[in-house]
Write a protein that binds this DNA or RNA. Structure first.
Length: 425
RNA sequence: GUGGAUGUAGCUCAGUAGGUAGAGCACCUGGUUGUGGUCCAGGAUGUCGCGGGUUCAAGUCCCGUCAUUCACCCCA
């Protein structure tokens, strides 16, 4: 053990678990690519102001959870706590919205940072895959994204998740509702902390998980009952489209997002295998964000899915991701000359697309065979001086123990023929 | 920021009135000088988180500290 440990709230992703992360990421990414989303990668840090204005001055993320730093040149930066603000900033900066092809559809994958007390499913360094459809107001887009996320989860084998759906209204109807809600909340018997939140972000009070608070909230006015005609129609359309696509969802009139930029459609994918954390993914429409960060009006919608949390949810459900074997063929050399020959064979197999490895370090046969076994390979190629003299190599199927001699110049073709007729896992 | 729990071998954990540190799994060697996974025999491994205190004696009791973890809060 070294004197150093991974910082609080972080952990190393190591085999074999790391393979699950890659598989989860790919399960999110592949459908996005097929749906016309292009990959975007933005810096790991941005000007603090981008998040302050984008995410919201009053949110916990900005007020106490950001890793901020001042550079030697005096710039105020922050490690990114979420992806949407950065991606939108990048799209605007590169004039993607002016290419005359709206919406701009982008997906991303990366690490995010929040300074929080760690607990199950909540780390200071976490991983998300996200998607954004920028510049178009169309309920089909909202539905498309929800369907893509839902299908990704299901393709991984996740079953016990629910989709919560709500509308937060827009610039026309939300201010009036907000004032109404504030007035109502001020009349309730709430603790001091909660009372403070009434002024800052009254909608988030609705999302409080404490039972005592929830009891007080029965009878509170709900956004759903105060949507303007346009928002109501839009929301209805999204609901219809989801139903038509066979997506089960629950209307949750108290679902609120922690970030200020959301408008209209809001949704969350929740799973109960994450301890006290419940969201494996979430997102919604953010029609005003572009203007908030100094851009033109670009109504947009997007989501972010937690990779760490999805892996936890899969583990909680006992889902076994059927990952391909890391190694298909393992070389067991005996002696210096055989090692050279076998290394050549293994290299050829690799160049032909076979997952191949061999025993290094001049191990004895017994240990090399043990390594072969541990590699998970289906076949071992055993080569010693005796074989070399005969111009053959021993091809052994590890599971059955069956072994045959194959001519050295035929072994690559032979292995490929055998693997080709078998599933690669 | 607040509260609870836990720190003993690589891993999971036991350790019983305070009396020289254990198990299972994993690992290594041999049985098998060219065959793994099974079996048999043998073997190695610890600053008992760290610091202090009580005691003839502390993994065990007390104080402090650090770390981990769960929950509140918040969120993906």
């Amino acid at each position: 053990m070294s004197t150093f440990k991974a910082p609080k709230g972080t952990y190393d992703l190591i085999p074999p678990r790391s393979a699950e992360y890659l598989a989860v990421r790919e399960a999110f990414a592949a459908p996005l690519r097929r749906a016309g989303y292009g990959y975007v990668e933005t810096p790991g840090f941005e000007n603090v102001e981008l998040f302050a204005r984008g995410v919201g001055e009053s949110t916990d993320i900005v007020t106490k959870e950001m890793y901020t730093l001042t550079t030697k040149g005096g710039d105020e930066l922050a490690l990114r706590p979420e992806g949407t603000a950065s991606v939108l900033r990048g799209a605007l900066e590169n004039n993607l919205h002016k290419a005359g092809n709206l919406p701009v559809k982008l997906w991303y994958s990366g690490s995010y940072y929040r300074y929080e007390r760690p607990q199950k499913g909540r780390y200071r360094h976490f991983s998300q895959v996200g998607a954004e459809a920028i510049g178009t107001e169309d309920p089909y887009l909202d539905a498309e994204l929800i369907i893509l996320a839902r299908d990704s989860y299901r393709s991984l084998g996740l079953r016990n998740f629910r989709i919560l759906l709500n509308s937060l209204g827009d610039a026309n109807c939300r201010p009036a509702y907000r004032a109404l809600l504030q007035e109502h909340l001020r009349g309730l018997d709430l603790d001091e902390d909660t009372r403070r939140r009434i002024d800052i972000n009254p909608l988030r009070v609705l999302d409080d998980k404490r039972e005592a608070v929830q009891r007080q909230l029965t009878g509170a006015p709900l956004m759903a009952d105060h949507l303007c005609a346009e928002c109501k129609a839009y929301h209805e359309r999204v609901r219809e489209l989801l139903t038509a696509a066979g997506v089960d969802f629950e209307d949750d009139p108290k679902l609120v997002r922690g970030l200020d930029y959301y408008t209209r459609t809001t949704f969350e994918f929740v799973h109960d295998g994450l301890g006290s954390q419940s969201a494996v993914g979430g997102g919604g429409r953010y029609d005003g964000l572009s203007e908030m960060i100094g851009g033109p009006a670009l109504p947009s919608v997007g989501w972010a899915l937690g990779v760490d949390r999805t892996v936890l949810a899969l583990e909680a459900e006992g889902v076994d991701l059927q990952l391909p074997a890391v190694t298909q063929v393992f070389g067991v050399p005996l002696g210096e000359e055989a090692t050279g020959e076998l290394f050549g064979l293994i290299t050829r197999l690799r160049r032909d697309g076979v997952a191949a490895d061999l025993a290094f370090g001049g191990k004895g046969l017994k240990n090399a065979m043990k390594s072969a076994n541990r590699s998970g390979a289906r076949y071992a190629l055993i080569l010693g001086e005796r074989d070399l003299a005969e111009g053959v190599v021993q091809l052994k199927e590890l599971e059955t123990g069956g072994q045959e001699s194959v001519a050295l110049d035929r072994v690559v073709a032979e292995v490929q023929a055998k693997l080709g007729s078998l599933p690669t896992r």
